[in-house]
Design a protein around this nucleic acid. Sequence first.
DNA 1: TCTGGGGTCCTAGGACCC
DNA 2: TCTGGGGTCCTAGGACCC
Length: 442
Amino acid sequence: MRGEPSVLHVDLDAFFAAVEQRDKPSLRGKPVVVGGIGLRGVVSTASYEARKYGVRSAMSTAEARSRCPHAAYLGPRFEVYRRTSQAVMAEMRALSPLVEPLSLDEAFIDLSAAGITGLTDDDVQAIAQDLKAAITKASGGLTASVGAGTSKLIAKIASDLDKPDGVVVVPAGTEADFLAPMQVTVIPGVGPATAQRLSMAGVRTVADLQQLSEEELVRQVGSAHGTSLHRLAIAADDRPVVSDRETKSVSVEDTFETDIIDRQLLAAIADRMAHRVAERLGKAQLSGRTVTVKTRMHDFTTHTRSSTLAGPTDDPRVIARVARRLLEDSDISGGIRLLGVGVSSLADWIQDDLFTDLEHDDTPLEVVELPERTRDLAGYYPGQDVVHPDHGRGWVWGSGLGRVTVRFETADSPPGPVRTFAVDDPALSKALLSPEDEPTDT
DNA sequence: TCTGGGGTCCTAGGACCC
DNA sequence: TCTGGGGTCCTAGGACCC
């Protein structure tokens, strides 16, 4: 806590949808929904026009479609969002060197790090307005909402109060009163489970929370959570704005259009995921010791299996081998809807391959054979690599009724666009798994 | 009409060590 | 012969965030 409202929280309004409306003028003023457009997709962002129909983030796309059938439904274009985000973050860094991005569309800014002191509420209001204007210019027309306060907690909550395109400055000294009438769920970290437990203790508002002793709170929600919640309730928050946060894990996961039971197919998919994880580790100059495989069953129960190596690796073959072994240990009876592969216990880059052989498993690497599933599908099966002259390389995602659904791998956004073809479409051709996907030595 | 993908942090039990 | 105490690492699961 400080004596002046020098922490800013900036939140771009309906970011993904706003970028799409910026790039496609015909969508402006109309409901736009960005997210997964497949059978099991969920909404990432709904434009304000779509929110009028009750469309919300994290809602299934199917439900969104039933609520707002005439909206434009778009898959995400992360590369474009990333570029826009970088331009916006640059404007923030021009204001202060201490900027902490929370995601592509959110960041904290610490004005005190810019040497600006003696700030009045009006000063902060003016700074926020100038920043908003700069962001709109740099992003090609997007708007942002800004909250300012004496801590991250207050700034974050304030930015939500006058969305979109608003500024809320909470004066120093008014924080506890500002929070008191709000629901406990405004406090970041209080989700449905915690809210439920608190409500059983008679706590619904922050004012209720302020009355509860720390001991009682710890009893209700656990040690770490209870202690921090007790302080946040009275707006005692001295968490610093931190510009460079270390990556702790890297992972890839996919939800399948239909549940998969076939172990060989899953092994092939795990292999592919291991390669993608390794590629991202390499780009970030990271390597890690713990490989985790995540499975989600048809009933949505989720399991993880992990294994820690003696030394860090970013070798796709090592990650793939461990992942396949973990997958063999996993129960997939009844089929799984999601598979994920991740690496954690990260270390800085290991220059050479010194440690990659430290994994004790010396069983030979078997070649994954994809199952033959011909029937009426002209030899196509899920997981198979294909090539299309217009769309490039992809792989079969789903199939049936004489049609195959293909995911194309673009630089833009894994997974790339999904397209459906007739099995006898002459443009679509099968490609072999590239040889480098399989290790040549052990 | 069921529930994405990328993360972070916390808890709890067991192994292991001194 | 009937039971330490603390610290660290590993594993699995869960809550939460955008």
